[in-house]
């Protein structure tokens, strides 16, 4: 069931089009990733989805139930907000309230009855492993805990859709994993997730669907596989680790006809449309130059790589036009 339908949505600021006739839909239970370059309009789109902005044109339809007709969320935004959870880039709670007080406060504002709310709070604290810190002031807990508290605040009213804007921004890898784990868990509990992030690897990790925004337009959207499919054969890469022979390897691969070489310092990535041929010549090269390869891995193109390719194509297309 399409829980959310974005139809011909356009958003203008001072006659400048930020979002241009967007069309896509989110199925119930999806973890839907919105990816795009900085300034592409991701955050504007999310703000539009939570009702912070009204679309200049088009509509966002929400259908919480099969038996109900889709409703334009901007027509009755306060009612719709009860179905949406939102966590912005920056944690949004009261630092001077305890964790429990924060959850209690936001829960009460959603109009949840006290008994139910207390249950929800206990469950959320346990879910986010914050039970032992519930009476601490929010400003006194770690950044990771604060992120979890923020997520809890967004989930306190058990929303149908959770919208997350850069949920792992400014977090270290461990905390990033923690947050992603929680998002996954929330999704397993039946919550549809819409997530915007710069970290395309984590989008690829947790999202089943993505929409690529470039210059305010959706260039691709669908399942991750669907988006990547046209590039799977073309954009495969060979990841090489040569240890002490790394520099010789870098010099050697220059003679190979590959589309792109990326030197990552301790490893090297070769992109080629003819991956079999490149691999054959690479083996010859290592034998000739007596380079000991410690590791060799052939990878399909990542979402990041596909995204970069799509953006590049799009820009070339724009230039040619």
């Amino acid at each position: 069931m399409e829980i959310l339908q974005i139809k011909e949505v356009t958003k203008e600021f001072d006659k400048k089009i930020v979002l241009d006739r967007l069309n896509f839909s989110v199925e119930e239970g999806d973890v839907f990733g919105i990816i795009g370059q900085s300034g592409s309009g991701k955050t504007t789109l999310l703000n539009l989805l939570i009702g912070f902005y009204d679309p200049s044109e088009g509509q966002v339809l929400f259908q919480p139930d099969k038996n109900k007709k889709p409703q334009d969320i901007h027509q009755n935004i306060n009612e719709m907000r009860k179905q949406f959870g939102f966590a912005s880039q920056v944690s949004s709670f009261y630092p001077k309230l305890t964790l429990r007080e924060n959850l209690m406060h936001f829960g009460q504002l959603y109009g949840i009855k006290k008994k139910v709310l207390n249950g929800n709070i206990d469950n959320l604290l346990e879910f986010t492993k914050l039970t032992n810190h519930q009476n601490k002031l929010a400003e006194h807990i770690s950044v990771g805990m604060q992120k979890r508290l923020d997520l809890s605040c967004s989930l306190i009213h058990k929303p149908k859709i959770l919208i997350l804007d850069e949920p792992t921004a400014n977090l270290d890898p461990v905390l990033q994993k923690e947050v992603l784990y929680l998002i996954k868990q929330a999704n397993h509990q039946g919550i549809t997730i819409i997530i915007a992030s710069h970290h395309l690897d984590e989008i690829e990790e947790i999202c089943n669907k993505v929409a690529l925004i470039h210059q305010g337009k959706i260039t691709k959207w669908g399942t991750v596989e669907e988006v990547k499919k046209p590039y799977l054969d073309k954009e495969r890469s060979i990841h090489l680790t040569a240890g002490e022979h790394h520099q010789r390897l870098v010099e050697g691969v220059k003679s190979l006809s590959v589309s792109r070489i990326v030197d990552k310092g301790t490893s090297l990535v070769l992109y080629s449309d003819e991956i079999q041929d490149t691999l054959y010549r690479l083996i010859n090269l290592t034998q000739q130059k007596k380079i000991n390869l410690q590791d060799i891995d052939i990878k399909k193109p990542s979402l990041q790589e596909v995204f970069e390719k799509i953006v590049q194509e799009d820009e070339e297309k724009t230039l040619s036009e």
Binding site: V90, S92, F93
Partner: peptide, 14 residues
Amino acid sequence: HNPAYFRNYNMPVK
């Protein structure tokens, strides 16, 4: 200036 302002703004409260 409270971090919670954005959340409050998006609450289903008039």
